[in-house]
Amino acid sequence: MDDGQAIGSGRTWFAAGMRGIFSLPALMLMLSFVGFCAFTAQAGIPVEQVVFMVGAVWALPAKVILVSSMLSGANLLTAFVAVTLSSIRLMPMVAALVPEIRTEKTPTWLLLFLSHFVAITAWVFAMERVQAVPREHRVTFFAGFGITLVLANMLLVVIVYQFVAEFPPIVAGCLFFLTPVYFLASIWKSARHPVIYVAMVGGLVAGPFFYWLAPEFDILLAGVGGGTLAWLAERTWRKRRELSA
């Protein structure tokens, strides 16, 4: 970010993270939240419950599944299982992020607290930008961005909820489509390891394949299967190149 200066106080880096709210990833997410807001308003879920959901759950796909479960009258256990299965991906995402941002002195409780702010957007943003932040300030930088992003979207829901129900279908459709298109572009752009490109293609192919094969566990199977295959392929290629070099 700014100029990657090695000096600078914690407050400076927290503020630098906060300024991430004006980035393309944050803008895309906020537009996606307008789309989610339209979805909940049409479903008749009161605004205070939507705001609580944004703060408590945070991950957008998990919220879409939670709302769908509520609408279909699912009981607590059924809803829990559906949401939790869709959220397993958060574990490898957090596990990949933690070694990038922590130092030896970072307390685990702080990482546990901050992990709540991890969802796809914050993850993509952090993986892309923390490289330019001195290691001792990376956790602070992420906290500034993550906390601001959640609070801003809670506020956004309060403001736009009453307007979204009247959106024309084209606008609602385009808002929804922003999410996948933005994820595609930003993950590709921010990849710093060759394995990311292979895994991306692997997941895009494996996702629909496992949806057809075993729709209950499609995302999980696609991630572990497609990801492992991608890792093996990239590793083989890398080793061969090291040998010939």
Binding site: A96, P180, G203, I219, A230, E234
Partner: peptide
């Protein structure tokens, strides 16, 4: 960690494919 990165990315990609 390289493997964890690959799995995390493939999971997100599978979510993207489903949304489309």
């Amino acid at each position: 960690l390289n493997w964890v990165r690959a799995v995390a990315t493939a999971l997100v990609a599978a979510v993207i494919a489903k949304l489309i």
